[in-house]
Computed example of a mutant assay.
Amino acid sequence: MQRVLIIQTAFIGDVVLASAMLESLHQAFPTAELDILVRKGNESLFKGHPYLHDTLIWNKQHNKYKHLWQILTQIRRNHYDAVINLQRYAATGFLTALSGAREKIGFDKNPLSALFTKVILHQMGSSTGLHEIERNQLLLYWPETKLSLPKLYPTQSDIHFVEQFKQGKYICIAPSSVWMTKQFPKEKWIAFLQQVPSDITIYVLGGNNDAALCQEIIDRSGNPLSLNLAGKCNFLQSAALMQDAIMNYVNDSAPMHFCSSVNAPVTAIYCSTIPGFGYGPLSTKSYIVQINRDLSCRPCGLHGKKECPQGHFDCGYKIEIAQLMRCLPAS
């Protein structure tokens, strides 16, 4: 085990969870060179990572398949001892099967798994009781590897940047999500901000595309101690800021996994999805908030949707603000 490649080109949260494998592999094989392949835009998660040798980047937005061939060439040149594919799609199966690695490891649900040297049963569903990091860990079948938690490593410049905001008590909220049905309704966020005690600063986090939503929530709440940081903090800076918050309020989305990666306190709000899918918070201090009664339509799918299939979105609107307030530490 001299050089290993991990493939995870999905969304941000999936990549953060994949960082657990870097921890496991480094502990088992401390001299091995560890590489990871991610989609363009996610490479900044691993800036300055102490255990990572190289980050390979697949640009899925521009000349996707031409770039896929270029990535394959790069992979073959690196002469990996093992390629570990966390995904279940043909494109990454193609990279794995033709990698030239001595060991090509992936899940049975990958359409090209017949060409792998080691195939692991993918166990999905609430009945398994497995978290995503445990599912991924099954790919590390070497007895030396032990389950580790995901971990990100904010750089000193990231830590220094957010020090300006760490004055007094504060919470962070991350109100947006790629999927509408994973997103706690903005009206509920507004109502929550109106109830947060006046001695607590609120930092609203997100990307550039989330800035307008975050500002609307702040403006309509009338909370004078709210600051819109959407688009102003990168991934690692956000994680560093969340680490010292008295609480972080997030959807079932990437910021929840940021909290897990730095063991930050977190309240995860589940709307259309459920914790039983295995993507829940891993922080020592973590809470789950969801509707207090069963809905026949929930969950409506493994992933979020662009709109509520039933048109009512009760799984979001019926969550009570008091549920969020109970997770706020007492003064």
Rank of each mutant, 00 (worst) to 15 (best):
H26T: 13
Q27Y: 09
F29P: 02
A32F: 06
E33Q: 15
I36M: 11
L37Q: 00
V38T: 01
R39D: 04
E43H: 08
S44Y: 03
G48C: 09
Y51C: 13
L56I: 14
I57D: 05
I57A: 05
I57Y: 02
N59Y: 07
N59V: 05
K60E: 05
K60Y: 00
N63W: 15
K64Y: 04
Y65N: 08
Y65P: 00
K66D: 04
K66I: 12
H67K: 13
H67N: 14
W69H: 09
W69G: 07
Q70E: 10
R76C: 08
R76S: 07
H79Q: 14
H79D: 09
D81K: 12
A82F: 06
L86R: 01
Y89G: 11
A91I: 03
F94E: 03
T96V: 14
L98T: 07
S99F: 11
S99K: 09
S99A: 11
E103W: 11
K104N: 03
F107D: 02
D108W: 06
K109V: 06
K109D: 11
S113D: 00
L115I: 04
F116I: 00
T117N: 00
V119Y: 07
V119A: 03
Q123N: 09
G129C: 05
G129V: 07
L130E: 04
L130H: 09
L130K: 10
E134Q: 15
R135A: 07
N136A: 05
W142E: 15
W142Q: 15
P143F: 01
E144M: 05
L147A: 07
K151F: 12
Y153D: 07
P154I: 12
P154Y: 13
T155D: 08
Q156Y: 03
S157G: 06
S157R: 12
I159S: 12
F161C: 10
V162I: 14
V162S: 10
